[in-house]
Design a protein around this nucleic acid. Structure first.
Lengths: 344, 344
DNA sequence: CTGAAAGCGCTAACAG
DNA sequence: CTGTTAGCGCTTTCAG
């Protein structure tokens, strides 16, 4: 009745202990690099473990320690449509977070949650699957997020700082970003500058405010006809621009609430024989990868996504550490490329 | 010495049991919907639990059950560069997998792994953090994947079917896709059709083979000068096309190994005053979201990403179930848009 | 320096 | 229908 070699259960601590002629406790200590264990025994055990491809059972460890090293990351999706997140910005964010978490030895549990039922994500925490939660984007669900915060779920949200906010946010300086973008267009001599975006989203709303501030500062009255409503999806953005152009309102500048919107808007402008930047100067927001390689390369407000991930994770770890993390605003900078070069 | 209400540990089964005047076992059974428990007690317990925001401790449950409901998803990243995954195709895939897993009650643990050290991902499995593993893309690391498979790690790979493959793959019919794309260009009357991509990647290699097959079938000799080497990154793709154009080799068609490459190639073609599709017809591969909204809208070979996620997850669950899952090839279809319309 | 023993929170026999 | 009991694999006092 010889047991077939690889048919058995996974190897565990007790097995190693037996083979090494020590106790499980010793193996545990050795594997955790405890100074208490004789350096040689430690080495012997470590090597034995490696040679057996042993790795620790996390559930047991977590249970014993009452702790774990997993962070839940949530990208809410639109209710009903259940659309895939189509904005490359999110992928960048995911990558950035994955790097930051990996560096600190945390796992990343990715969840999709209906943006209308954000409170579901508390379950991630309550069940002990995740030690803390990162939410990418507020999506106009400020209230639900506040509710979660009051339930004491350790959570950091990527988004705008809002009044009466009970949770920690990390986000770019949307107000300043919007201001810089518009200011830049003004400096290019543009006077009829349109804004395109969805101001129901807190971040967009701030960018819009920045836009208005810049206009005001230049003594230009804000013209409501130049505010184009558009969601963050390519098709809808294109449709919005088409509708707008059909109105025949004159424009010489365009500030888009995201690069994705900007790129799609540019396509429609070209379709309508409007040259970019000669006829219309365009500035986007995000500085996604694609912005630098679009045609023409897109001037945009850069959200430093790589450091964003670091900031978010650091804040969350502070929270988990019992420290009071305060919301952070990351400075934005404008990256001038071809879509807004002075032609003159 | 009154305990402060929310300062305490998380509420657990025993607490509920006490409050309900039953044993922990009963609570466990009630919460798991066991038929053994009196319907009324069950309801009472369930409601009590909900009102206390109780949720089960997963680590304990997993430890006890020797099981868990987490699947590891890995998108390898390029060594040295540690670049963020920049291809939107991957985001789509992630979304599709997230949906498929969520539907089946599984969590998704996202990991970044250096593509040169793929065997690291065995740790995900060995540590019990994930019950099975999904790898997106082979990245020319066939051997490492085989090694993992032989270590009996339950794993499904998105990619091409390769000779001597020990692991299960799910992928689109790259050979046929390449054939269809090229055939389509030939039907448009194109004769000097270039291929751009990186044939070190198994999937691209098959697309390339399909391309050559189509040429051959039309009695056109494959011209090595028309094979453009390019990685899957935008900047490199643009550079490759620029270099190629500088050679002054005549082309009237282009088949790109990915939409991202295609879109960037089109940009460069336009830059060089070549009109698409009038001068050069272009076909991509993937049918990413953006393809339909690019300028002009891109003709491409569609990889049905939504069903891909389902297929991958189903195969993995079969594997976990001890069944023998066989590799699957998902049919591809060509989606004709503007970049290849007959101009005539 | 190492071992014995207890226990993390849950579930599943086994008894009643 | 419900309670008692044992134990999942690990870490950590507490004794040597």
């Amino acid at each position: 009745m010889t047991k077939r070699a690889s048919e058995n259960k996974k190897v565990q601590m007790m097995d190693i202990a037996r083979m090494a002629g020590v106790s499980a406790a010793t193996v545990s200590r050795a594997l955790n690099g405890s100074e208490l264990i004789n350096a040689e025994t430690r080495k012997r055990i470590t090597e034995l473990a490696r040679s057996l491809n042993y790795s620790i059972n996390q559930s047991a460890k977590n249970l014993r320690l009452g702790d774990n090293r997993t962070i839940g990351v949530v990208i809410p999706y639109g209710h009903s449509t259940r659309q895939h997140i189509s904005d490359p910005f999110f992928l960048g964010m995911l990558g950035s977070l994955a790097d930051a978490l990996t560096d600190r030895g945390y796992d990343m549990l990715l969840s999709r949650v209906d943006s209308d039922r954000l409170y579901d994500l508390a379950a991630l925490y309550d069940t002990g699957r995740a030690k803390g939660i990162i939410v990418i984007g507020q999506w106009g669900h400020h209230d639900q997020l506040n509710e979660l915060a009051m339930r004491r779920v350790p959570m950091v949200v990527w988004g705008a700082q809002l009044p009466k906010q009970m949770y920690v946010t990390v986000g770019s300086d949307n107000l300043s970003g919007g201001f810089q973008a518009t200011e830049h267009l003004l400096q290019q001599g543009r006077r009829r500058i349109a804004f395109i975006g969805d101001i129901a989203m807190p971040e967009s709303a701030l960018r819009f405010d920045g836009y208005k501030n810049a206009l005001e500062r230049s003594g230009i009255a804000f013209d409501p006809a130049l505010q184009i409503h558009s969601p963050f999806t390519p098709l809808e953005a294109q449709a919005a621009v088409r509708t707008f152009l059909r109105l025949g309102i004159s424009v010489d500048g365009l500030f888009a609430a995201s690069d994705l919107i900007a790129i799609n808007a540019i396509g429609v402008l070209k379709e309508n024989r409007l040259s970019v930047p000669a006829d219309v100067s365009v500035v986007g927001y995000d500085d996604i990868d694609q912005a630098a390689h679009s045609f023409p390369p897109l001037t945009t407000v850069r959200q430093p996504i790589n450091i964003a991930g670091e900031f978010i994770v650091n804040s969350l770890l502070q929270l988990l550490n019992g420290e009071a993390a305060s919301s952070q605003v990351i400075p934005t900078s404008i990256v001038v490329r071809e879509t807004s070069r002075t032609v003159a």
